[in-house]
Design a protein around this nucleic acid. Sequence first.
DNA 1: TTGTTGACCTCTT
DNA 2: CAAGAGGCCAACA
Length: 115
Amino acid sequence: MNYTPKTKDFFQNVFDVVRLIPKGRVTSYGAIAKYLGTGGSSRMVGWAMNASHDVKPKVPAHRVVNRNGMLSGKAHFATPTLMQELLAKEKIKVNNENIVDFEKHFWDPVKELGL
DNA sequence: TTGTTGACCTCTT
DNA sequence: CAAGAGGCCAACA
């Protein structure tokens, strides 16, 4: 798929990928950023998530975590515990701020969707 | 237009 | 081994 960054907003691009994340799976900002082609701009992905609050349909931002599998963005959800609760529904175990077997639930868009 | 910020990632000390 | 600083790109003021 040829992604034309200038054609659509960077956010829309990120939202699309995040919504493509299968249930019970999680990915990292860097993986999405790399899939978009920005690579090192993993921060932009997180920023897009910041706008995901008003975006519809709802974007499963709780499935997106940092490279360490730590719920870094949980503080930006409606409630600090919301992210963990949502992950719990996905059958994803979360120990404090860290996802258990993160690599096991890891979903790489580049690998799944293809680069 | 320029400067700052941002839910990150990686290297260096 | 642990902590700190820098760098990446894009949007917002």
